[in-house]
Simulated scan of single mutants.
Amino acid sequence: MTHTPPRTPLGAAEISDLVDRILDAGTLPPIVQAGHPALRQRAAAFDGQLSRDRLERLIGLMRQVMHEAPGVGLAAPQLGIPLQLAVLEDQFDVDPEAATLRRRSPLEFLAILNPRYGPAGPTTAAFYEGCLSLNGLQAVVARPESVVLEFQAPDGAAQRREFSGWQARIVQHETDHLNGILYLDRAQLRSLSTNAEYAAHWAEAGTGKAQEGLGFDATPAGISVPGEHPDA
C-alpha cells in the first residue's frame, strides 16, 4: 500500500442520519462489497455521535447481520457506516486438526469502539483468510500471532486485552476495516483463490500445499495502518 486511506468525508450528523435510516428500515442491511467507498476510508472515531440506546441497537443489528452471513466479525463500514465500531464472535465448530494448527478457540461476543492493535511478540502466522465484503475469494495473509488490543467498550470504559491465534486474526481483520484496509492489501496475491478452487485444491489446515502449487511465500506484507500501534 502506497498511501494512507483518506478519512471519511461524513460528519457526525450525516453518520447519525445514516444509522437512523438503517435502524428504521425494518430489514437486515446488505453487506457492502469491495468498491464501496466506506471500505476504503478511515472511519470516524466514535465520540458520541449516537445515543447509548441507538448504539446498542446498532450493535445488536450488526450481530444479527454477522450471524446471518455467517461470519466471525463485522465492521460498521461493511454496512456502509463510516464509524469506528466492530463486532466479533466465533462460536463455530471446526475440524479439530485445523483448530489446533490455527490456534482457533471460541471467542465470546465482543463489541469494540476506536480499536488499535500492536503485536504482542515477534511470531507471525500465515493462513487463508476471507471477507464478507469480498464474496467468494480467499488469500493467504501473514499476521502477528498475538496482539494487544486497546479499545473502548460500548459503556465507555477503556480496555486493553491480549488475543492470540485465530482470535488475534479476527481482531486485526476487523480493526483494519475501520482504517480502510482490506485483507487483500496484506495478502500474498499469488495465493488468491475462489472458494471453489480452494476447496478443490488447497483445503488443508496449513498453507504448504498452496505455497508449492501456486508459487508464493508466506512472509508478512509489511504495511502499516493507523489502526496499528507497534509498541504495544
Rank of each mutant, 00 (worst) to 15 (best):
G80W: 06
V225Q: 13
F127S: 06
G222W: 07
R102D: 06
R57W: 07
N114E: 04
N135F: 14
F92H: 14
P115L: 06
A168V: 07
Y117H: 09
L55M: 10
E108K: 12
D53N: 12
V140I: 09
L18M: 15
A158R: 13
A69Y: 11
Q138I: 13
L132A: 12
L50Q: 05
G213Q: 11
Q172S: 08
C131N: 03
A126V: 04
R52W: 09
L113S: 02
E68M: 10
H67E: 14
Y128H: 03
L110E: 04
D95P: 00
L39D: 00
L137W: 15
L39Y: 02
V94D: 12
R186F: 12
A99K: 04
R160G: 02
S191G: 07
I22K: 07
R186Q: 13
R42P: 00
R63Q: 15
E108M: 06
V148L: 12
G71N: 05
A200P: 02
F163T: 07
A76Q: 04
A126S: 10
L58P: 00
A142L: 06
E14G: 03
L18I: 08
P37V: 06
T123S: 14
A38Y: 01
N114K: 05
S51G: 10
L55N: 03
A221F: 11
R102P: 01
Y183N: 02
E174D: 05
V65I: 05
R57C: 08
R102Q: 15
L83Q: 09
P106Q: 02
S133F: 00
A69N: 13
Q138V: 14
D20Y: 13
H229Q: 15
A142S: 15
L149W: 00
D90V: 07
R190L: 13
L182N: 04
A99R: 07
T27E: 15
P96D: 09
A98R: 12
D217N: 14
P70E: 10
I170G: 01
Q64H: 12
A125K: 11
L83N: 05
D24I: 05
E150G: 10
E14D: 14
D24T: 11
D231A: 14
R186I: 08
G136D: 08
G165D: 05
E212L: 14
V32L: 10
E162G: 11
T27Q: 14
V65C: 04
V148P: 01
V32S: 05
D20F: 10
D17I: 09
A203Y: 15
L149I: 11
Y117N: 02
S51K: 05
L178S: 03
L214P: 00
F163R: 04
S193C: 14
E108I: 02
I15Q: 02
G213V: 08
G130I: 07
G213A: 11
A199G: 10
I112F: 06
A120L: 11
G118M: 04
E14R: 12
D24V: 02
A34L: 12
V147G: 00
A44D: 09
P119D: 07
F92Q: 11
N135R: 15
Q188L: 11
D53Y: 12
Q78V: 06
Y183G: 00
G35F: 03
A120P: 06
L85N: 01
F151T: 01
S51L: 05
R116M: 11
Q188A: 15
A232V: 12
L23K: 05
G165C: 03
R190V: 07
P220K: 05
R161W: 14
A196T: 13
